[in-house]
Amino acid sequence: MPGVATAADPVGLLARPYWYRTLPADADVHRLDGGVFAVTGNRTVQEALAHPDIVAEHPLKASARAFGPNVLDADGAEHRAFRALLAPILSAGRVDAYKRTLMPGLVEALVDSVLDSECDDFHATHAHKVPYGIVCTILGIDPALEDRFHTLTRPLARLLDYPTEETEQTHTNVDELLRLIEEQRTAGRGDGRSLLETIEQTRDRRGISLTDAEVRSTALLFFLAGTETSSAFITSLVYCMGRGLFGLDELHDPAVRDDFVEEALRLYPPVQTIVRFASEDLALGGVRIPRHSAVLASIAGANRDPRVFAHPDRFDLSRSRKGSIPFAVGAHACPGALLAKTEFSLLVADLVERCADIAVTRDRRRAASQSFSHPSAFAVRFTAK
């Protein structure tokens, strides 16, 4: 489908939660101000994310400056090397072990903390507890430091957002988190299976040419991405459960529960917009994109494309979700999708087992962020059985 020139400031545009809807509906690629291109529509977003000349690496990215070489900002062989370090931690066998031994206690503690209460800001006060507990354990971090890690990590989410908010404080927090991770490693809290130990063993066994500093940065970004995306989506899950779209009892069925999680992921992907860069002159959706242009790929737009999903804004458990890409596609697709979905399913199961009702009691229908997106400005009440 041919693209059109669109006069729009990308920063102001992305301040709107559903910004892709403000662009012309007869095009999938939109030229914005400042040499930025926005990509909407399911097919073209997937094409952009899998395109070999649309890359993550850019020397001026705030995340690259803050973390150095890392899994999020690398491409090609270097990116594959970083992902190889994470593969053992995120394998099906390891996730199954977490499901049996680690996740149930964390989920139960979260549900304990909200029963018979009304939360004005579920995301800030509760949503992080399960993912931070999981990733702290995987990293071999003392559970007593969980709140410290949460405090230090939250501002770093703005480094990965668009527009980026980079401050002296974010760089200070990166340095402090790397120091804490190294301190915990030196203290020997791991059991030989922690993230740092596993990725160091994988690096040495496979002869992967990554420095200790690059390994630490990958561990920290794993922490950031794994916790903040999950915290955002757990907030979206609770919001969907509290909207009264259907009875909680229906979610006792594991198949229905899986459909619920998948449909919530389609409607509320925790990463709404992905920033990439054209490494060469290329054509996408009939539009010429010059080298070095920024490319904003809208996961939210792809997942609500009416050409793929009938009545795309409707929460429909019976629909086919073929084409839904909440964890992106291509070389940079989220490697922790299985871990995340296992965590989400266990939380929903425990909530429906122990809650007679979950109700959104105030809803200003706002959304926060592009990179760690979730409904905001709502209150939710949990009534115990």
Score class of each variant (00 low, 15 high):
P290K: 13
G301F: 07
N303M: 13
A300S: 13
A255T: 14
D305T: 15
F344L: 14
P269W: 04
G336S: 13
P254I: 00
R307W: 07
S279R: 12
G285P: 01
V287P: 02
P269T: 14
R307A: 10
K341N: 11
G285K: 00
V256W: 05
E263A: 01
G336L: 12
V256I: 13
V348C: 03
G336I: 08
R319Q: 04
A310E: 12
V348Y: 07
L347P: 12
D259P: 11
Y268L: 13
A264T: 15
E280G: 10
A331N: 11
I299H: 08
R257H: 01
E280A: 15
I289A: 05
S318G: 15
P306N: 01
D316V: 08
A294L: 14
F344C: 00
G301Q: 09
S320K: 07
Y268M: 14
A283S: 14
D316M: 03
R314D: 13
H311I: 10
R291V: 01
S324T: 03
L338H: 15
E262Q: 14
I325F: 05
A337Y: 01
K341D: 02
I325E: 00
D316Y: 02
V261G: 06
I274T: 13
K341W: 01
G323A: 07
A294T: 15
I274Y: 09
S320R: 13
L346W: 02
L267Q: 08
A333K: 12
V275G: 09
D253A: 01
R288G: 11
L251W: 09
L265E: 05
T342A: 11
F327K: 06
G286K: 04
R319D: 04
D281F: 09
V329D: 09
L296F: 03
V287W: 02
V348F: 08
A283I: 06
I274W: 11
G286H: 06
L284E: 06
A255I: 12
F315D: 01
G323N: 05
D313A: 11
A340W: 01
V287C: 01
H332G: 06
R304Y: 11
L284V: 07
A283E: 11
H332M: 06
G301C: 01
L265D: 06
V256M: 03
R288P: 04
D259I: 03
L251C: 01
G286I: 04
R304K: 12
L284T: 04
V261M: 11
A255M: 03
I274R: 13
H292G: 14
S324P: 07
S318F: 06
S324Q: 10
K341C: 13
R314W: 05
D259A: 15
G301H: 11
D259L: 14
I299A: 11
A340F: 09
T342L: 09
G301D: 00
V295N: 01
S324H: 00
A278Y: 03
P312R: 07
A297F: 00
R307E: 12
V329H: 03
T273W: 09
D313K: 03
G286V: 05
R321D: 10
F277E: 00
E280C: 12
F260Q: 03
A300K: 12
I289L: 12
V261N: 08
G330V: 09
N303D: 13
S345V: 03
T273L: 15
F315L: 15
D253H: 08
R321S: 02
A331E: 15
D281Y: 02
F344H: 06
